[in-house]
Design a protein around this nucleic acid. Structure first.
Lengths: 375, 375
DNA sequence: CCCAGAGGTGAATCTGGCT
DNA sequence: AAGCCAGATTCACCTCTGG
C-alpha cells in the first residue's frame, strides 16, 4: 500500500481529501459546475462519455460571448465546432484538475467528436497511452447503403503527462484474454436485452454503454478502492460497474430522470465478494525472492553448475549467490547479460538447472520456493 | 458517365485539365511543392499516409534480447505538435485544392497523429464519412507489458464538404464481404512475406502498407479511370494497386530510393480482373471468445462455482476469468489440467455450470453467447 | 519431397525503485 | 535529479535449415 509509505502528515492530508469526496453520489447539475465542487488531485480515474450531437443545452455561448440556443439556432459548421471545442476544453480542464498526478483519463466517442477530443487532450498535456476500438458485435446497419456500417466507437486512454505513472493490470488483462496480451481492439456486444434500461417500453437513455466495456476499463486501469469519476453519468453504467468491482464512484448528471434511473440501478447491482475480486497477480507486485535466498535455504547448493537453455554457456554458483564463469563474475542478471553480450538479461529465465532429471529455469525453483513458504 | 452530361465547353476544359496531369508519374520533391505543380480540381481521390510523428524514446528490445527495428527515419521527426500541425495544414490545403468538388480524401494514422489530422480536416471543411479501423491480424506485441497491444491503425474517409457528393460502391463492398454490408473495421494482415519490398535482405521502407488495404479503399470509393493522388508515395503501394484496378495514379516522393523501388514495382504489377479480388482478401475466421468475455458480459458472474461433470472437482471464477480451487490458481485450461494431474485439458468441455436447472459444459454458454452476438 | 524446429520481424510514444 | 541495477517482458507470420 502506497499510503503506508507516506509521511503521517501527507497521509492525513490525503485522507482528508478523500473524506471530502461525495463517494457513491450523483452531483446534480452541469458537469463543469459539479466538478468545480470537488477538491483537486483527488480522483484516480475519470471516465467520460461526452455528448457529440452538439445539442448541449441552452447554457452555452460562442467565443465572442454571444448566447447560443443549441436547439433552434442554425449555426454554420465552424461556429458549432468552436462551441463544441469550448465546452470540451472546459470539462477537460476540470477533469485534469481533480485527477491525481498518477491518475488517468478515458474518453469515448465516434468520428463526430473523437478527433477534436484527442487533439485537445494532447494540447492540454495528457499523454495518450492507447486508443482502443470498441468493435460492436451487433451494430446498427447503414440502411441507406451510402457508407460503411458504423461498427465501432473509439476510446482514448491517457495519463496526466509523458512522465506520469499510471495503473495497468497487465496480468489481469492477459488472463481475461485467454493468456494472450489484450489488444487495442475489443469485440463486445452493444447494450441491449436485460441490461438495457427501459421505462414504459422505451429506452431510458439513447446511448447507454454496455457494462462489459466499463468492466474492462476499470479492471485494466484501476485498483480496488480507487475513486472513479464520470462527469457524464447518464444512467450510471460507470457506477454500477464500479460497485461490482469494489471501486468508489462519483457521478455528475444534469437530467433528473437519468439520475433516478441510475440510483435505482446501482442500488440493485451486486458487489462481488473479496475472493471473486482477486485477479492474477503480476510478478512485478509479487513478493521478491533474491537468488541468494535459494542458496541460503538449500534449494540450490553453492558449487552447482548452471547453464543456459542450450547448455552453451555455464557458470558456477557461489555461496553469496554470485556466479563465476571463467574470469567473469556477476549476478545472475549481470553475468547472463555479459556472457551474451546483451544490454540486459533476466537471469531467472536465462539460467537453467538440472532438477529431478529435468532441465528447468531457475525461476521454476523460485516458484517452488514461494509455494513452499507461503503462509 | 458524368462527362457526357457536360456542355461541350466544360467537357473540353475538363479534358484539358486531365491532359495536364502527370499520370503514372512520381513527382520528385517535397509533397507540398509537388502538389503545387498540379492544377486545381483535377483529382478524384487523395490517399495520404503521412509521417505519424511517433516520438519514440530510447531503444526497445524483445524479451529474447533481440533489437526492435523502429521507425527512426528523419522524415518522422518533428520538434513539436505545433511544427507537425503546420506541416499537416500545408499538405491538407494543397490536397483540398487539387481535389475535384466531388472527390474524396483518405488518411491513415495512429493515435500519435490521427486525432490532430481528423480535427484539422474538420476545421478545413472536409466532411468525415467514416472512420475505418484497420485491425491488424498480426500486430507487433507490446514487449514490456505496459499497455494494450497496439493492434490497429485508423483511416479517415472524408468528402469535400457536408453537401458534397462522393463515390461509394456499396454493392462491390457487399459482395467482397460475403453479402453482408462492409463494416467500418477491416481485418487485414500487415505487409510481410513476398509482398514486402526488400533490398539486400532488408526492407526498403519501414512502413510499407499492404496492398489489400488500398484495394479496398479504391474499390470502395473510386471508379475505373479515376485519378488517385498519393502525396506520400513511399514505395508505391497506391500506384501498384491503382494500376491493377485500372485507376490512374500520381505520386509525390522526396526520397529517390523510394521512387526507384516504386517505379520498378509498379512496372511489374499486372492489371487485375476484379473478380479475382475476392480471393485476395483474407477469409473470415471463426470468431474467438475468451472465457473472460463471458465474465465481462455477465454470462457468468465472478464468484460462480463451476465443477467437472461428475461434480468431484470444483473451482471459483474470479473477476479476470482466472479460476481458484483451494490454493491452486489458473486459467480454465491450466487449472483443469492441474487438478486432474493431466498434461493438458480443454477447459471449455471439462468445466460445467448450472444453467437454467441443467448442468452444462461452459462451452454451451460460449455457443449461446456467440448466437446472441452474431453479426 | 516433406516436416519439424529454429530464427527473424513488424508504425512502439514499452520499467521501476532505490540511492 | 541522475544513475544504478534488479528483473520483467512477445504474437503471428514468414523463411531457412537439417533430417
Amino acid at each position: 500500500m502506497a499510503q503506508t509509505l507516506l509521511k503521517p502528515r501527507a497521509a492525513q492530508a490525503q485522507a482528508d481529501v478523500r473524506a471530502a469526496l461525495p463517494l457513491g453520489q450523483i452531483i446534480a447539475g452541469d458537469c463543469v459546475e459539479a466538478m468545480r465542487s470537488l477538491p483537486s488531485a483527488s480522483v484516480d480515474l475519470v471516465f467520460a462519455d461526452p455528448p457529440y450531437n452538439l445539442q448541449l443545452g441552452g447554457d452555452l455561448s460562442r467565443p465572442d460571448g454571444s448566447h447560443v440556443d443549441a436547439v433552434t439556432d442554425h449555426w454554420d459548421q465552424f461556429d458549432s465546432f468552436a462551441v463544441y471545442d469550448k465546452f470540451t476544453r472546459e470539462w477537460l480542464t476540470e477533469a485534469r484538475r481533480v485527477l491525481k498526478p498518477d491518475g488517468a483519463l478515458w474518453v469515448i466517442g465516434s468520428y463526430h467528436n473523437i478527433f477534436r477530443l484527442g487533439a485537445m487532450m494532447q494540447d492540454m498535456g495528457f499523454w495518450i497511452l492507447n486508443d482502443v476500438v470498441w468493435r460492436k458485435a451487433n451494430p446498427m446497419p447503414n440502411f441507406k447503403g451510402t457508407r460503411f456500417t458504423n461498427a465501432h466507437e473509439t476510446l482514448i486512454w491517457a495519463s496526466m503527462g509523458e512522465k506520469a505513472r499510471y495503473t495497468f493490470n497487465y496480468t489481469a488483462m492477459k488472463t481475461l484474454n485467454d493468456e494472450l496480451q489484450m489488444r487495442s481492439d475489443w469485440v463486445l456486444p452493444i447494450c441491449n436485452g436485460q441490461e438495457r434500461l427501459k421505462k414504459g417500453g422505451t429506452k431510458v437513455h439513447p446511448t447507454q454503454k454496455p457494462e462489459a466495456l466499463l468492466y474492462r476499463v476499470m479492471l485494466a486501469t484501476t485498483n480496488k478502492g480507487d475513486v472513479v469519476l464520470d462527469p457524464f453519468f447518464g444512467t450510471g453504467t460507470t457506477g454500477a460497474v464500479a460497485k461490482r468491482l469494489g471501486r468508489q464512484w462519483i457521478g455528475c448528471e444534469r437530467e433528473s430522470n437519468y439520475r433516478e434511473a441510475a440510483l435505482e440501478r446501482i442500488e440493485m447491482a451486486l458487489e462481488l465478494d473479496e475472493s471473486a475480486l482477486k485477479t492474477m497477480q503480476s510478478p512485478r507486485s509479487a513478493p521478491k525472492v533474491a537468488f541468494g535466498t535459494l542458496i541460503e535455504t538449500g534449494w540450490i547448493a553453492a558449487g552447482t553448475v548452471i547453464t543456459d537453455k542450450k547448455r552453451r554457456l555455464s557458470a558456477t554458483v557461489r555461496a553469496d549467490g554470485s556466479l563465476v564463469s571463467g574470469t567473469e563474475i556477476g549476478s545472475i542478471h549481470g553475468l547472463g547479460a555479459k556472457l551474451q553480450g546483451a544490454p540486459a538479461c533476466n537471469g531467472w529465465t536465462f539460467w537453467h538447472i538440472e532438477h529431478q532429471g529435468e532441465v528447468k529455469p531457475i525461476d521454476a525453483l523460485r516458484k517452488l520456493y514461494l509455494l513452499a513458504t507461503e503462509d
